[in-house]
């Protein structure tokens, strides 16, 4: 963060299975329409495949699959959010993404203990935007755990 005293940070909001999520925009490199994704055999199931991004081959993670939601077919609103974290570049496939909002750091609460499901592991916090709840993703956790999952052979 360029300015440590900033009280708010821009976030990219996206939708997944009817819920709003946010990722700090500083880790977002770009957003793309989902075009052809080449499946990679024997990769973890939540990895949809690979795409080219500026000459680099990057994995595309299906966040629905990652969070244990049923998969949904791609449509015109489906987006690939390219994030860069921990020295890696990874794409997230989400239902839709269009909002870019500043979220003040005070409104972000730590995730409640009782939150169930897989996505609980991947949350950095929960923010309140007016009436709306926005789940803030822990990007490193989302892309990190895949390494621990052994390749099914």
């Amino acid at each position: 963060m360029p300015d440590p005293v900033a009280r708010s940070e821009p976030y990219i909001l996206f939708e997944l299975a009817g819920t709003s999520y946010g990722i700090p925009s500083r880790v977002v490199q770009q957003m793309e329409m989902v075009e052809h994704i080449t499946p990679v055999p024997n990769a973890p199931p939540f990895v949809e495949g690979v795409v080219f991004l500026r000459g680099q081959v990057i994995p595309a993670i299906n966040l629905r699959e990652r969070f244990g939601f049923p998969k949904a077919p791609y449509n015109l609103r489906t987006r690939l959010i390219v994030v860069r974290a921990a020295g890696r570049t990874v794409g997230f496939i989400v239902d839709s993404a269009r909002e870019f909002v500043p979220i003040s750091t005070e409104t972000i609460q730590p995730p409640p203990e009782g939150i169930a499901g897989l996505s609980g592991h991947y949350l950095a916090g929960i923010a309140t935007l007016g009436q709306r709840l926005v789940l803030i993703l822990d990007v490193e956790a989302v892309i990190g755990q895949g390494e621990a999952i052994p390749t099914p052979i």
Partner: peptide, 22 residues
């Protein structure tokens, strides 16, 4: 990326249409 480094695949290329070919 470790997520897609799988045995039997050495790298990727493209054949002119922007799609990845393993």
């Amino acid at each position: 990326d470790p997520l897609v480094r799988v045995p039997g695949i050495a790298g990727a290329t493209e054949l002119g249409d922007g799609q990845v070919v393993l």
